[in-house]
Simulated assay, not measured.
Amino acid sequence: MPGYIRHAVIIVSVLGFIGGPSWAVDPQPAETAPTAGSPVFGVTLPAGYRDWPFVSIAHEAGDKPDIRVILANDIAMQAYREGTLPFPDGAIIARLAYTYEASAQNNAVFGREQSFVAGEPTNVQIEVKDSRRFASTGGWGYGQFENGKPNPDEKLVNSCFACHNKLPAATDLIFTGYAR
C-alpha cells in the first residue's frame, strides 16, 4: 500500500475513533426525524435528541398522570449548568413523557406497592430558543410529537405559550430547573 494511502487510512481511522466522521449519518430511527414541523412554530424533532444530557425528571398527577424526562442540547445545558438566563438562541429543551405505572415486578420483590416506572411513551415536547423568530412568544417555539410525528393541532401547540407565559420572567418561561 502506498504511503499516502496508508496515512489516509490511519487518519480516517483515528477520526472515526475520536468521535466519528462528520459526514456520518445520524443513527436515529426514522420516527425521530419527521419531515414536517409542528404547526404554528415549525419546530421539528432534533436528530439525536434522545442522547442529550439529563436536566431533570418530573411526575405529573391529575387526569393524565405521567412521568417526564427533561433533556437539553449542549447550548441549553451550558446555560443550565452556569445558571445563565435567559437561555441563548439555539438552546433546545426536550420533554419526553411516559405513562406513570406501578412496577408489578419490583413491588413483588418489595412486598408492597412502592415502585413506579415509566410505561408507554405518550409524547415528546420540544422548545427551541430563537429570540427573533419567536419574539411574540418570549423567544421560544414549541412542538409536540406523538410516535415521531408532529401533532397537527394548532390549539394544542398555541396552548404551550399560554402556560409558559404564566411563569416569572426570571425563569425565561421554562418550568424545569436543573437537577444537580
Rank of each mutant, 00 (worst) to 15 (best):
V128H: 03
N123I: 11
F145Q: 00
A94D: 04
G111C: 05
S131K: 02
A118I: 01
N107H: 07
G138F: 06
G90W: 10
V109E: 13
F116Q: 10
A94P: 00
A104F: 04
G148A: 06
P121L: 00
R133I: 04
L96I: 12
E146N: 13
T99R: 03
I126A: 01
Q105C: 08
V128G: 02
V109W: 12
Q105K: 12
Y98L: 01
N106Q: 14
G141K: 00
E120L: 05
Q125D: 14
Y98V: 02
Q114K: 09
P150E: 12
G141R: 02
V124C: 00
V117T: 14
R133K: 08
E146Q: 14
L96M: 14
D130Q: 02
V124Y: 00
Q114W: 09
T99Y: 02
T137V: 07
E113G: 09
V117M: 12
D130S: 06
I93Q: 05
Y142R: 03
N123V: 11
T137H: 02
G141S: 07
E101Q: 09
S115L: 09
Q114G: 15
V128K: 02
S103A: 08
A94G: 07
G138Q: 04
A118Y: 03
Q144R: 13
Y100N: 12
K129W: 08
R95D: 14
N106I: 12
E113K: 06
G90K: 05
N147G: 12
D130L: 03
F134T: 03
